[in-house]
Design a protein around this nucleic acid. Structure first.
Lengths: 219, 219, 219, 219
DNA sequence: TATGAATGAGCATTCATTCAT
DNA sequence: CATGAATGAATGCTCATTCAT
């Protein structure tokens, strides 16, 4: 049983196999170190077929990025129930995020490491996805401020920076959770939620930490 | 004046030139895409000399990582005055971090992007540096708790996670600050400080955000 | 009307389409650069069908050469009225030659450029056709000598060389006429006829061969 | 003695070896069929060295064309004594041409067959050389007319066509002479000279152009 | 009759690395 | 100390050709 020298499959199926193999190889070896030979072999097909269906290494890599980006954003969206209060939505989103990245380490490596490291065209692909998440978080912050009956009065750039920081922290924690035995997605989400929400809560109530002013530095 | 057909320079100087060229090339092209030819040319020496001094491409890359990691951690340490309260120390450390990464984009690219993307040996090098920063932050968190006259009672892993999140957020904001025109190192530090400290302050005072309990999930 | 999603056509028609596509592709791209994919697509059929009908790329190319060679020699023959004096016959043959090559540039490119450039088997095909033309010209030369009431006393090899030179000049002028705007087939034929029949010496002395005027052709 | 695994030769020497090998391979196999592997092996070097010195297959081919074109035109020029009457100059040029092409069949194949068959950039290279020869012949024709005390009154285009025809006939006869055993360069030149200068008509009437007798050459 | 699916084999090109001087 | 000369080993990509349906 199993892969008995699979032959003559419809194109869509083969294409999925190739993308699976490519994500796995790119994620583990890196874009440049991954060879088309290796990907083809892992996919159980010959190299020309990979080129016939996916055109080039660049196109194949792009297809991987797009597929994994879509899967991740959809997982986060699917994990969030829109009716809930902002903090609950964020909590659910974080859980979905950590769960998905833990379950798809190669895909996450492609997005988080490889795609950003190998040239603008690929990085732009990921930037687009990341922007989606940042916008999602930004909106939650704004909604949270409204729910706290506060006109945030936070400058827009400040909110953007906070969302960036939160997403960055999440990305970093995802790697940490995957690498640290015994840390579940739920625990990672809880840690980040603590870190983020208590901090944001205070900000919403108008009690920010105040940076020191008279330090003698320029700028 | 300037590069006067460099001949017969002491080894230390030559080595610095090579590392400068290598960091610049690795940072911009990436580890695999950077060729020894290009590095040697940029350094103004012949390729065999690069091999004579630095043995191999892997060793050269490792040397780059080590030099840049040392420079970064030393910059952070040098920016912090030990006597101050924990929050001030963190603030100063963040400012030093954002300032250094902004001033050394290629070095930061080597550490943050390239080193993590091209195999365990290199990633481990960066992990070590990162661990230093995480330990530094962890200690600050513990000190802060003590200063607040609180027995934190935060489990050790929780503190580690918070430090991870903070460092991750900083790394992410560094890229954001570099890419967003008009965001200075100081502003990035302030944003992150707000985000982090207000949240941590509440945690210290025993008012964490409480994750929902009855959800029916396993794990 | 036109190519109405060709289905189930008789073999002869399909084969003609394929040869048309092949001549066009071989003529423009060259033998090696032309791909069976491109030919099949241009012919509007699937690749296996091309192989079913024509066996291999080599066979296909050979078929192209044979078809175009036959077309060219038949065009020349059809253009010559056997009863006329030798010089008139030559004149008509040259006109037919230049007209045909001008009207079938791809076929001419296959014969004149591609077939000679890609290995003996193909070159031999063309040599055979060329031999036909050389023989035709040789006979005209012999007949002309007889008509001049002269025992030519030209050694056979000399006559062969003259015929070779004439055919070679014609081939070369065909390319020149096609590439030079404003030079018609008739003009090319006249130039060559002058050159061949009168020779530069006579031309210099104002004694050109005079092409027949009233022939009823247009242009 | 002989090629005892030649090592460490100056660049210029190696480059010549490579070009020799390339001309031979391109001339015999054709541009596309010739592989860089084969050329490198024939040159007695490794493939990377070929690329280091000649950059690419295209550049290598272009270098071959240029070298052979230069060699051919220089051979023709060197064979002609400028002071002589036009017909004698033409005669000497033809002899040099047939001699050179007979002695360099691969180079001639590169110029006459391969370069014209594999794309405009290469063909243009040969066209330039051919133009030189055509101009040379054109001038001889004009001079001959003047020597015959005739204002040629031949239209310029007509002269151009005659020169084209002559050069084309020469090119064609070169192949014929090489392929026909027992035909020397001198004989080929004589045949063509007769054809060109006297014309078939005169030849038929027993008035050939007479090649100079006392030249002191053997054969 | 006609084709979608699939591949073995080859090719141009690049790169890290090493001698001999 | 410093380098010009040279290569083994990959790697991305293409193409003629063949099954199974």
């Amino acid at each position: 049983m199993g892969a008995v020298k699979n032959k003559r499959m419809p194109r869509a199926v083969r294409e999925r196999q190739m993308l699976d193999a490519a994500v796995s190889t790119f994620g583990q070896r890196g874009y440049r170190a991954a060879s088309m030979d290796e990907i083809a072999e892992l996919a159980g097909v010959s190299k020309p077929l990979v080129y016939l269906y996916l055109n080039s290494k660049e196109d194949l890599f792009t297809a991987c990025i797009r597929r994994e980006a879509k899967a991740l954003t959809e997982a986060v969206r699917a994990g969030v129930r829109p009716g809930l209060p902002a903090d609950r939505q964020l909590w659910e989103g974080l859980r979905a995020f950590f769960t998905h990245t833990a379950e798809n380490p190669d895909g996450w490596a492609v997005l988080h490491l490889q795609a950003r490291t190998h040239g603008e065209p690929f990085a732009a692909e990921v930037t687009a996805m990341r922007e989606e998440l940042v916008v999602f978080v930004t909106q939650l912050i704004v909604v949270a401020a409204r729910e706290a009956h506060r006109d945030p009065s936070l400058p827009e750039r400040e909110v953007a920076g906070l969302a960036e920081a939160l997403v960055g922290a999440a990305e970093s924690l995802a790697a940490w959770a995957n690498a640290t035995p015994g840390v579940s997605a739920k625990q990672a989400a809880a840690t980040l939620m603590n870190f983020a929400w208590a901090g944001l809560g205070d900000l919403m109530e108008g009690r920010p930490w105040s940076p020191p002013v008279a330090e003698g530095q320029t700028e």
